[in-house]
Design a protein around this nucleic acid. Sequence first.
DNA 1: GTGGGTGCAAATACTTTGCAACCGA
DNA 2: TCGGTTGCAAAGTATTTGCACCCAC
Lengths: 129, 129
Amino acid sequence: MAVLKYSRQREAIKNYLQGREDHPTADMVYAGIREDFPNISLGTVYRNLSLLTDLGEVLKITTDGADRFDARVTPHHHFACRQCGRVMDIMIPVENPVDSVNARWADGEIEECRMLFYGICSDCKKMKN
Amino acid sequence: MAVLKYSRQREAIKNYLQGREDHPTADMVYAGIREDFPNISLGTVYRNLSLLTDLGEVLKITTDGADRFDARVTPHHHFACRQCGRVMDIMIPVENPVDSVNARWADGEIEECRMLFYGICSDCKKMKN
DNA sequence: GTGGGTGCAAATACTTTGCAACCGA
DNA sequence: TCGGTTGCAAAGTATTTGCACCCAC
């Protein structure tokens, strides 16, 4: 890719993500941005999310169903609710096992560890009553 | 789903997965099974992989691109190569952080932790030379 | 003016599903 | 026979891409 050029759409997508903590899908971003840019297209949203991910300005979280995006790029992990599908940050520090795995198994092969925790979130547990 | 009935196709799929360590996609399973069951359909492969996953006899690994399946159901984690896309088991024991996360954050909400490590595998590193 | 970015629509990739025929218990 | 299972094809969901036009530099 050549020299990056400014685009209002890309800026809006970045801002949108930074104002959220719910790890929206591309579709949700599209719906949100449309309120300010009624003519934006879904393709543009996908293109920019993918670009921002490559630039490291956004994190793509692959789970069951549609990919989710996160503007919080500092290392952290996620919890996905099996019932309602929501994805949440896990804020507490979790020991990062990359070094110990590299040391014992792959010696530098591994760059990153993403932990995805599964379960039923407290909201969904309440519903069950 | 009601009482499970035997099917040669399902058996073949299970056997196929048990004989592999490369975490094939549904398509790869389909191609493999076809050598013994030339008439099996992709839909049947998907249906059975999904059923076996629900039964806990097979693990579904969601990564970028197509889902991958693993007949090794004892707790372990995976390494995905960013270059060639291969997914490999990580055989060494990695501390399971579920309990500590539950204790500090969600108190029983979390049932399972899947760690997905990313990097460039040794084969791909060799290619770079 | 040049080349990257956009909107639109068509195409692709992956997975699920409806249905009639089939087969295991 | 009964109801789960299959093959087939069509549909569904998620994402990517080709292209003409537009806009930042």
